[in-house]
Each structure stands twice: as C-alpha cells, then as structure tokens.
Design a protein around this nucleic acid. Structure first.
Length: 583
RNA sequence: CGGGGCGUAGCUCAGCUUGGCUAGAGCGCAGCGUUCGGGACGCUGAGGUCGCAGGUUCAAAUCCUGUCGCCCCGACCA
C-alpha cells in the first residue's frame, strides 16, 4: 500500500478531549474519530488493526471448536423481560422507542449481549442430549446505554464483541460445561498472547449475571477502571471485587474496658466521631445496614475498612444486597442514620473477621447522637456469623501470607459458568437417556475487541507514539522513501515494497513528497513495528536501514538482503509477542 | 443521576471580566518559489450560522434566560 493512495490523517496536536494515552494516540494517529459520545468511526488504519484482532479471535475460537453465527442487534424486549434482565439492566438496555409507547419500537431493544437470542435458538432446535454439547460464537456490534462513556474506546455505547455461549447436559465429564470452560479459557490465553498483550487471568465476581465460576482477563494500565489484586509471590490474583484477604491477628493488649455511652451530637460519620473522640478509625466499628430479600442485613467492618458488597452477598448467601433506606435503618436501630451499632441490635449480623479481633472499640449506640466506647466483640454482642466481607487494602496479605499488591487494569475478556439461569427462564430443556427433561447448563465467554486494541496501545507506547504488537499492527512494515525525486530511491523503495508485499507482509510505502523528519515522526506516531529507510545517503554506502520501533535497534543491510532481514524480524516479533504473557 | 469544566476555522487556542468598525493567532489546507536524513522557509490565498433558540440593547462571540452537545470527577457497570 502506498501512503499517497491510503488515508492516514495524523496530527501533531494533542486532542483536548482525550485524557488517556490510547485515546490521544488513536486520535493523533488517524485510527479513530468520534461521532457522538461513546461511538467511534474506525478509520482505515484503525479498521485494519481491528480486523486483524478479529481474525486472531476467529481462528482461536474455531480451533476451540466454536461454531460461528450471526445474530441481530435488534431483539424483542419481551425476551429480556422473560429473563428478568430488562429490569436488572435498566437504562443500560438501549431501547428503540420510549418505554411509554406501544409500537414495535418500544418493544425492541439493541442487544448488549445475546444470551436471550441464542437460548431461544437452542430451545427451538435442540431437544435431546444427543444434540449437546454446543458452543456458538458471534463477533458483532453490541450496544449499552452507558451513563458515562469514557477513555476513548475503552468504555463506549457501541462496541465490537466476541461472545460465545455453550450448552451442556452436565457440568463435569465428557461434553460437560467444565470441559468447554477450560477450552475457552485456554483459547483466551492463546488470543491475548497472540495479540501481544501482557495479560493476567484472575478470579472474578460473576455479578448479577449469576453462575458459580468466573475468570477475567486483565491488562495492567493506569487507564483501566478495575483493580487487580495480586500477591507478591504471584500465587494469587483476583479482581478487587472478589479478592480474599488473610485473617488479621488479634493485636491483644486490651484492657477490655467497660461499655460507656458518650454524647456525640450530630456526629454520624466515622471521620466526625474519630476526630471528636480522638480515636483512630481503625479502633471503630462501622455498622452498615443493608436490605436483602426484603429483610435487614447488618454488616460490621472496621472503621478504616469498606464493605465489599459482592463478598457480603456471598457470605450471607443472598442474591444481592442493597443499601437500606433511612426508614429501615430507623426501624432496626431506633436511631437516626449514623448511630447504628451491634450492641443490643436484633437483626442478622455478619461480622467481618477484622472486627472479631478488635478490643475496646467505638461504635454507634443505636440512640440518636450517642456512641459507645469499650465495645468488645463476644462480650458485648454475640458473633454468630463471621466472614471476610471487606475490600482488600494495602497492607493485607493473601491467604498464603504473601503481601497483596494493587494495580489498575482493563478487563479484556471474561468467562462465566452460567448454570441454568437462562435455560430455565426461557425453557431451553433437553431429554436425557431416560426421557426426563432438564434445563441445559450454560456457559458464556466474552471478549471486547476494541479493548484489545486500546489495551495494546496502553501497554505499548512511548513519547513518540504507538508501538504496535506485530500481530495486530495495521501494517507490519513501513518504508520511508526519503526523497521520492531521487530516481534510485523511489525505484528501490518501490521494488522493496513489491517484494515484501509478494511475501505476504503488510507493507506501507511512504511515497509522500515530504521531508525526512516529517516521515519519521509520522511512522513513529502510527507505530509500525518495522521501518525501512531508503535514502540517497544510505544508498551511497550501499545500504538501507531497518529499524525496530519498540527497541530503536537499527540494522544496516545491503538492499539485496533487505527483504530477507525484514522477514526474519517480522517472524521473530510475532513469536516474541506470543511470549509476553505475564502469568 | 450528582459535582465541575468547556462549546469561536479541520486541530490547539486567544478575544468574553468592562458590549462598539471588517472576529484573531499558531498548526493544517491551496498556489508559486526555495528547500530535502528528524515535524523547513518566504510570498499569496481559501476557510467562521462565534453550539442552538429566545431576550436585553442603537449595537451581542461578549450581558440574561432556556436548550443541546462534549470532557473530567463521583455514582453505576453481566
């Protein structure tokens, strides 16, 4: 491809609206252009890269025995009501018409995923255990009414996803869910390795989608919105939403002071009480009232800790917890919000492990404007249910004793064991050998292709621009013909271009009538992994230069050896990218 | 959805506080000439409903009201 016949609108200026590196660079390199908040055009350069990512994903999914199909973005709202997700998703579900209307638009949504559609297909066509297992996948545009799109293509309202859905008669054994789950997990590792991403697979919370196992694939970068918690010895890694901590030891040295009520007028927060009583937050017990299944559920954590609602819900064995409203808090505690405490409280209480080893703590008195000091768990209130229900924090250790580290990261893939939530809701059943009916057991497996692209840029760029992994670079090689007016230069550059193209390498020939510095800057900005420089100065010495973008290493070779050298570099780079997996 | 910020040329921005002639700069773009191994230079030129609507005024990019859009922080996030 010749630069003058292609379309690469680069820019020197840093776009004012872009905050994160991948967004800035994608705009500057002419990869994307925003159309509205949360939706982008992929310009030719960007689309080449996206198609390469798509090709890798498709190859690996096929290799993992997935079968591809295509489903519509438009779906009936009715199916989303069947599974309860219309309500669960709320405004995130994009509707064609206003919910007040009663025409087809009001009954149609744009799919944020396709569990309902695929389950309906299986319900319609699959009746027997003999037809299972099945694993479908699609690579398609999806829609989510994100309240706040951000960070370029990392969080958008329209995006390209690979979603796979598997259907089984059983969890374990031949053809079972576990089998496919493991195969998908392995395929994901292959996909992210081949895409040149430094990724980490972690235990994740499965959230309201339900299911009993889930892993996320994370790429560490400051632009991410998730936190990865990893032990220093790398033996443990999890999403912050799920990360477990080692129990804290009893610090002892307690006087086990008597209970004392203190007046704390209008002081309802940990900070206020802590300052007023000159008592560190870590010496206080935070009492949070939740509502679960229509009943009050009380969580106790140390004053300097936060409740992890996902962990709390799991520990309490309830589907979901929601913060209680003031009325419920008042009813349970007999006090205004801000003065709740465990002493004398009659409700189901889950005590965080860190609270169980506290002594002489300060907490609410269940009496407006009063707190109590000298609170000792076990002595002053019964600890009937204790669990790890808090967010991990700096200083915590994994269960094996290794200290935990925290990194921001982007989620690029997620695999779930779904179970029978959708098959039951939509009656996707099969008959077993005995003619007995069962709901199918399902798994689902998603990858955000746009995020792979952004993550690759986040993980691979420098002050000059993008450093693409070879496998997903829009072009693998760029030839800078330094002065197209010089006959030998343009002839040789054209010849190298044709020869490289003939060997199957994606090569871009910068044949513009521009000065050398201009071409170098552009080549670096758009991040082509290998640059071949053809100039009359080099030709006078009988050489062309071959430079690697990522390292800056330069080889000077005779023109006749150039194609061979480039081929070897491309090959080596592909292999090196595959080895970049961090864990 | 709460808090903050910003809408002026393709891009980055000035002008607005204190209303006043034909709305500016740099980059980019077009023509001509010089230049050509790290974003060259000179001359000439094109390009604007100042987000939109209403209001105040002799006069509005500037003041007022409304509205739409975009970005950031937070909440939310299968």
């Amino acid at each position: 491809m010749k630069w003058t016949e292609f379309f690469i609108p680069t820019s020197k200026e840093v776009p004012a609206d872009a905050a994160v590196p991948s967004h800035q660079l994608m705009l500057r390199a002419g990869i994307i252009r925003q159309v509205v908040a949360g939706a982008y055009t992929y310009l030719p350069l960007g689309y080449r890269s996206l198609r390469k990512i798509e090709a890798i994903v498709r190859e690996e999914m096929n290799a993992a025995r997935g079968i591809e199909l295509n489903m519509p973005a438009m779906q009936p709202l009715e199916w989303w009501e069947l599974t309860g997700r219309a309500a669960a998703m709320g405004d995130v579900l994009v509707r064609l018409g206003s919910s007040g209307g009663d025409d087809w638009r009001a009954r149609t949504v744009l799919g944020p995923t396709h569990e309902e559609v695929i389950t309906e297909i299986v319900r319609a066509y699959v009746n027997s255990y003999k037809q299972l297992p099945l694993c479908f996948y699609q690579i398609q545009t999806k829609f989510r009414g994100e309240a706040r799109p951000k960070s370029g293509v990392l969080r958008t309202r329209e995006f390209l996803m690979k979603d796979a859905y598997s259907f089984h008669t059983c969890k374990e054994g031949d053809g079972g869910l576990d089998d496919t789950y493991d195969r998908m997990y392995a395929a994901y590792c292959a996909i992210f390795s081949r895409s040149g991403l430094p990724y980490i697979a972690v235990e994740a919370d499965s959230g309201p989608i339900g299911g009993d196992a889930s892993h996320e694939f994370m790429v560490p970068t400051d632009a991410g919105e998730d936190y990865l918690v990893q032990s220093e010895d790398k033996a443990y890694a999890a999403n912050l939403e799920r990360a477990e901590v080692a129990p804290l030891a009893d610090e002892g040295g307690a006087a086990d002071a008597p209970l004392t009520e203190v007046h704390t007028p209008n002081l309802g927060t940990i900070d206020e009480v802590s300052t007023f009583l000159k008592c560190e937050p870590r010496k206080m017990i935070k009492t949070i009232i939740y509502e679960a299944n229509g009943e009050a559920l009380v969580a106790l954590v140390r004053g300097d800790h936060e409740v992890n609602e996902a962990k709390l819900a799991r520990a309490a064995k309830v589907g979901m917890v929601a913060a209680a409203d003031a009325a419920l808090i008042n009813k349970i505690t007999g006090a205004d919000v801000g003065f709740a405490g465990p002493v004398g409280l009659s409700a189901r209480i889950i005590v965080d492990q860190a609270v169980t080893v506290m002594h002489d703590a300060v907490t609410g008195a269940n009496k407006t404007d009063y707190h109590i000091t000298g609170v000792n768990p076990g002595r002053d209130f019964e600890v009937t249910e204790s669990a790890d229900i808090r967010m991990a924090v700096k200083g915590d250790c994994a269960k094996n004793g290794s200290p935990l580290t925290f990194k921001k990261c982007i989620e690029v893939g997620h695999v779930f064991k779904l179970g029978t939530k959708y098959s039951e809701a939509m009656s996707a059943t099969f008959l077993d050998v005995n003619g007995k009916s069962h709901p199918m057991i399902m798994g689902c497996y998603g990858i955000g292709l746009n995020r792979i692209m952004a993550a690759a840029i986040e993980a691979g760029h420098d002050e000059k621009g993008i450093c693409w992994p070879m496998s997903i670079a829009p072009f693998q090689v760029v030839i800078c013909a330094l002065d197209m007016r010089v006959e030998e230069v343009s002839t040789l550059a054209g010849k190298l271009h044709d020869e490289l193209e003939a060997t199957g390498i994606d090569v871009l020939l910068d044949d513009r009538d521009a000065r050398p510095g201009f071409k170098f800057k552009d080549a670096e900005l758009i991040g082509i992994p290998i640059r071949v420089t053809v100039g009359k100065r080099g030709l006078a010495d009988g050489i062309v230069e071959i430079q690697t973008r990522r390292t800056g290493e330069t080889a000077k070779v005779p023109p006749l050896d150039a194609v061979d050298t480039v081929q070897k570099l491309v090959q080596a780079a592909m292999e090196a990218d595959c080895a970049r997996k961090t864990k």
